[in-house]
Design a protein around this nucleic acid. Structure first.
Lengths: 105, 105
DNA sequence: TTCCTTGTTGGTAAATATACCAACTATTGA
DNA sequence: TCAATAGTTGGTATATTTACCAACAAGGAA
């Protein structure tokens, strides 16, 4: 069995991924690194909000960043991202299927 | 690109998994269904706390439940759970590796 | 240097999550 | 029917998360 401490470490990573904006950032970075400005322009929120979401992802080790001139370049550090999203999608598909069964009763 | 609404749906599932107690429950249920009492005895918290964590997992479609006599039997509805945890573990391993590089400087 | 652009950090208010206790419902058994 | 057991729900206090605004720091250009 997994210990509570191990579960806490896992939970920290998962929690970093549990926000729609952060999930969209991960999707954006799936095809390669991007500067902050490109990530920021996708969202309507204040740039400080986007910056803080990126910090959460960085502290979890899900993205990394490097300075390049005035830009800050962000890169995804999660090669298994596709498996991860496929698993979540499978849960969602199953939920839809189950709801359909309920509606047919 | 994924829409904000799609990201919100995914985030809801992921958030349900972002708590150490809920992760331990998922691990417990990996090998088959269990009654509430068996799940509860693993944790020191009040049974109402455990019950509410199970409700969160249920509302996300990660577990299901059925009544059997006085027992409430919980079952994991996430066949991809191993892939999911493997991905999180990979991020953790990468974090450890990166920290080691830093320490060697 | 001084200005300008880029992104981060600090502060704050509102929303959400969490844990505990107490009270409740449902089922079983006497 | 009454009591006992199993689990859920309601209430509440505390902690965490979030978004925005304003101020700041870093780097490049004039």
């Amino acid at each position: 069995m997994i210990t509570f401490e191990e579960a806490e470490i896992r939970a920290r990573i998962i929690k970093a991924l549990s926000h729609p904006v952060r999930l969209m950032i991960v999707e954006l970075l799936k095809d390669g690194e991007l500067p902050f400005s490109k990530i920021n322009e996708v969202f309507e929120s204040d740039k400080s909000t986007v910056s803080k979401h990126l910090l959460v992802l960085k502290e979890a080790g899900i993205v990394s960043s490097r300075k390049s001139g005035l830009d800050m370049i962000y890169r995804l550090e999660m090669p298994c991202v596709t498996d991860f999203f496929n698993c979540i999608t499978a849960v969602i598909e199953n939920n839809i299927k189950k709801q359909q069964i309920c509606l047919c009763r």
